[in-house]
Design a protein around this nucleic acid. Structure first.
Lengths: 196, 196
DNA sequence: TTCTTTTCGTATCGAGTCGAAACCAATCAC
DNA sequence: GTGATTGGTTTCGACTCGATACGAAAAGAA
């Protein structure tokens, strides 16, 4: 029987703290008749650009299967928080759009209180935590897969404003609205050095 | 090193990073035929002292209901990772005990790789992150309830070694084994100043 | 052009989780 | 003793989850 008493000096281990905070956040998300997966999906739809507001991208983001994602979308659509509209170009694709009701609900995102709590921390502490968490994410990701997402303007596929003043995505070969360029994209790839 | 272009809105928010890491950790815990809740429960049983190895304490710790906790325990017991034994004094209570099989499984805790990733971070960064997360936890807890847990030796109810050399808990009015005093307790309360 | 193959999304199945609520038995308070 | 409280379990309906099968559209190869 080996108790892992690694210098228990009252300081809680970092992994335990992350675990605890995660569970806390999870528990908060059983409210307004939704569950954590549904809140996650709703948030995703609100933050993703138009290329990424699809069931497949949602599944990749959540780290689940397309089947599961489809069911979660069914639940949310039934409740009136979003709708799925067919893509005119590719008839296999359906785009997910947040309804007004969905946007209203999102204003009461139970995780907002996490942001409030973060706002009470000193800025330099937040920066250090960001730096550390980012490195943890990258390290974990490399060893367990999973999809990362980023904003178009920092993406390797991003091509600056065109003559017409539009942003452009080199991967999708399509123009981006100013708004979309600031949203998350499932095709995100870290930019190369000095490229574009 | 690419230029850290954080001046644009490409700066990832801390809450998003926490969210991402949480989902990643969650995804890792679907393995060995268990799910995240079951891993959490197994970890809890391994770390809690004897007063806290009960269904009720587990529910409080997980931030769920007693019913749900009971079901999770059913699943784990059926798989042979733990057993529930009646309390001789209070016949309502059942104590949860980790089986040998459970202890073996715990050695392959999927979250161990998180600890490994943390080990790659500089010590001072880890300390700052601990400090920040601890404050976040406390802040969140105060506004959304939830149970905290701590180690007996740092608890307000803790009464130092008795004449017999045993630790003692003033809340339960019971002696503590040396081992139990180092474990987590559901009745934890931060110690008063200068006490113990 | 016709085929195959791949991709995208949905439907279905079974096991199991979730919270809510009802429930029971033991214990406590008066 | 009576009544309230506490600790656990059970049941219920909605939902998640992965796996699988499925269908339609698109892309690729012949």
């Amino acid at each position: 029987m080996s108790t892992q008493d690694t210098e228990i000096s009252g300081k809680e281990s970092l992994s335990r703290l992350l675990d605890r905070l995660g569970r806390m956040a999870r528990g908060l998300q059983y409210c307004h008749g939704l569950n954590p997966a549904q809140w996650d999906s709703l948030r995703f739809v609100a933050q993703a650009n138009r290329f990424s507001r699809t069931p497949g991208a949602l599944a990749a983001f959540l780290g689940t299967t397309k089947g599961t994602a489809s069911q979660t979308l069914n639940a949310l659509e039934k409740k009136g928080y979003l709708s799925r509209v067919p893509d005119p170009d590719d008839k296999r694709v359906r785009h997910i759009e947040l309804t007004e009701k969905g946007a209203e609900l999102l204003a009461e995102d139970p995780l907002n209180c996490l942001d409030q709590a973060i706002g009470r921390l000193p800025d330099d502490m937040v920066d250090t935590m960001k730096e550390g968490l980012e490195r943890l994410c990258i390290n974990m990701q490399s060893r367990c897969g999973g999809q990362d997402m980023g904003i178009c303007t920092t993406c390797g596929h991003f091509q600056g404003p065109t003559d017409a003043g539009n942003m452009r995505c080199g991967y999708k070969q399509a123009d981006l609205s100013c708004e979309d360029a600031k949203r998350f994209c499932i095709n995100f790839e870290a930019a190369q050095t000095g490229d574009c």
